[in-house]
Every structure is written in C-alpha cells, then in structure tokens.
Design a protein around this nucleic acid. Sequence first.
DNA 1: ATGGTAATTAAACAAACGTTTGATTGAACC
DNA 2: GGTTCAATCAAACGTTTGTTTAATTACCAT
Lengths: 221, 221
Amino acid sequence: MGRGRRPGPRPGTSPAATTREDLLRAGAEAFAERGFDGATAERIAQRAGATKAMINYHFKSKQGLYEAILLATFTDLTARLDAVRAAGGTAPDQLRAFVDAFAEAATARPAFPAMMAREVLSGGRHLPAHVADRLFGVVGVVRAVVEQGVREGTFRRVDPLLTHLSLVGGLLFFFATTPFRESVARARLGQAPPAAAAFVAHVKELMVRGLAPGRPVRGRR
Amino acid sequence: MGRGRRPGPRPGTSPAATTREDLLRAGAEAFAERGFDGATAERIAQRAGATKAMINYHFKSKQGLYEAILLATFTDLTARLDAVRAAGGTAPDQLRAFVDAFAEAATARPAFPAMMAREVLSGGRHLPAHVADRLFGVVGVVRAVVEQGVREGTFRRVDPLLTHLSLVGGLLFFFATTPFRESVARARLGQAPPAAAAFVAHVKELMVRGLAPGRPVRGRR
DNA sequence: ATGGTAATTAAACAAACGTTTGATTGAACC
DNA sequence: GGTTCAATCAAACGTTTGTTTAATTACCAT
C-alpha cells in the first residue's frame, strides 16, 4: 500500500525544477479565478501536482508566489507595449498596434487581465513597488501616443489619462471576463461568445474614429 | 469597569433596526474594497459598530449579506437604466443618458462598480440567479439602444454586444478604480485625480463620435 | 405588573487557512 | 562507496475564519 508519493526530488527532472513553473502556472490560474484571498495554497498546489509546502519552499510564502507571478506578467506586458511605442508610426497606427499587443499579451498569459483588474480594484494592496512601476508604464505609453496624436493633428484635443482609462478599461474588462461570457454563452444562450479578434477590431475602430479630429457631433450635448 | 455593551436591543431605536442597515453599508464598503473572500465578517461587523453574530442573525450568513447587498445594488442600477430606455429619444441621446445614469448609480452607491466588476471577474460565482438576471438587463439596454441607432441611421453598423463591452467596461473600470487613482494621485504626484464628470463627458463624446456613421478613417487598417 | 418577543452580546466551536518541521529520497561529487 | 545537498512529502502547528449557542436586555401588548 502506501498511496501518495514518498519524499525526495522528482526522478529524472534534471533540467531545472518543473515544480516551480507548475506552481507559477497553477497560481496564475487560481489567482485570476478567485483573487488572492480566494485562492488557497492547498488548491494551487493540487492544481500544480505538488504539495502546499512547495509554495513556501520555492517562493517563501503565498504572497511571494503572487508577486513572482505579477512581476513576470507585467514585465511581459510592458515589454510588448514599449515595443509598440518604439516602432513609431502615426498615432492612430500606434494605437491600433497597442490594442493588438494588449490582446497578444492576454492570449499569451490568460491570467494577466484578471489579475491586473483585481489588483487595481484592491487599490494595489498586494502590489510591491517595483511591480506597480510597470503598471504605471502602461499609462505612460497611452499618454505618449495620445499626446503625439494631438501634436500631429491625427487626434482631437483629448485628455490622455481619460483616454487611457476608457481604452484600457474596455480591453481589461473584455479579456478578464472571457471565462464568464463563455459560461454564460453555454448556459443561457446556445450562442457562441464573441471572439477576441472581433472585439479587438471593434475597439480599434471605435477609438480611432472617436479620437479623430473634425466636426463635432450634431444633437444635444 | 465592564467595558463592552451588555446584550439586549439597542435602546430608543424604534424606527426599524439600524443595525441591519449599518451592516449593509459596512458590508458594501468592505466587499468592494477586498472582495467576498477578503472581507471578513469580523471587520464588517466592526465597521458597522456591531458584532459578527449580527450578520448571521440578520442575514443568515456572510453569503446572505453579500446577496442582499448585490440585489439592492443591481435593482437600483437597472431601475435607472430602464428609465433611460423608457424616456426615449434618439440613440445618441439615450446613450448619453445611459452614461449619466451609470455615473449617478456609482455616485449613489459607491460600492457598486467594484462589486459588479469583481462578480463578473469571478464568473458570477457568488451571484444568485435572480441577481444575475438584473446584470443581463444592463446588456439588454445597451443592445436596444445600439440597435435603435443602427436602425435610425445615427450609428454605424456595429455589434451591440461588443459595444456594450467597451462602453460598460470603460465605465466600470473608471468608477471601480477611483479609490486606487486617488491614493496614487496623493502618493505619487501631488496632482488631483480626474473628476468623474470629466470622464463622463469624455466617454459620451468618444462613444457618440466613435459610433457615428460616415466616412471610414484614413490610414492603414 | 407580567409575559413574550426581538435584538443583542460574549463565548465556544469546528473547519480551514498559511506556515513550519522533520523525515526521506535521488542525484552529483569526490 | 560514502557524503552532501537540494527537493519533496506528510504531519503538526498556531491562527483565523464563519457560524452557533446561551445568556441578557429593552420594548410592547395585555
């Protein structure tokens, strides 16, 4: 008998511990679904095929695991967004590229939108300073693009921060609630939920048109 | 000596228990700030000036308190939004009124945006069916307005659901993260955070312009 | 006056939580 | 072949959690 593994390193796993990475992956999923408080160490470990003691061994604490995930996630995101800015082009083009990059980041790391949304919702309570910096970097990119657009005349005179909030808010909301929409679509309507690509195209068009200079809209203000 | 009240009803509180309402208020704040799992019964009770046993007495369980808050909140919101639809007018006007109503609901019940955002983020895990219905009512209002706009020619042919996601996502994100922006504004920059009114005006203009029919935007697609 | 009811408290409770500990194993190194 | 070391597990630990219980009080109707 004696079900359950006996202690000791996993046999034949020479190329760097996979347990650590399994915990990062499982933790990201769990934190995205339930939030920091709702995701228990036990469940994260189970999902990773390990024991919860491994969290403390590899990351010192549950909070340590959380921070490691956030750092990796935001580093990936800001790298993509900075690349958009560096690639140059007109402001509308950069804005479109921004939306694409955001969507690619959400696809590469499905947990990122929910974790980011939860973090700002909680007032950044679990955010260490150096991770918060990356978050503000996102604001900086949008601001730079909008200011460029206003300067070159491709955008009307809009507030960069307000533009950031409406743009990133919409993107974050869409990608963070994808699981919800999928379950609703299955349960309520037989209908399939909208694809990410359709939303991306929609947001690009909406923003570029909405920011374009020119005749004010008719009708009551 | 003998600190700590002795048991028994609160004296002189004839007009309906205020404890119940205190718990609703304190619970809304706590759930908005920390989420369902992060908000502890002890802290909610403290904030309400009561003991945690009162939660179970008045609402059966912590979950019961949560549901009571959600129901009241969403009922208020959908009432406002339905009124917008009922008032009629052109689609752009209704859309502007929608944004106003949303903002008023967020002002009247500051906890609502964060609670709603957290709920959809969690896939509606804590949502009882009759409360979920109200949530879908919001989608219905936006859909109706957009479809009317397309019909009457004031909007281009856009997907109502995608429009809903970008509009409500932006609004929710803004109002749900107001505390975060305020703390950041205080700590990082000496600058004041943008006022709600400014954001509301921004979103109205952005959406109405972005949805307006007419010449497609120049530049690469 | 008296009895009943609803509201409240402090304390007790079991379950669940994150963390720590100690034993155990496989592999690398000499 | 023995030693060392990092990785792993099961179990135990102390704390915190939401809930229940029993006692206590104020108000109201009779």
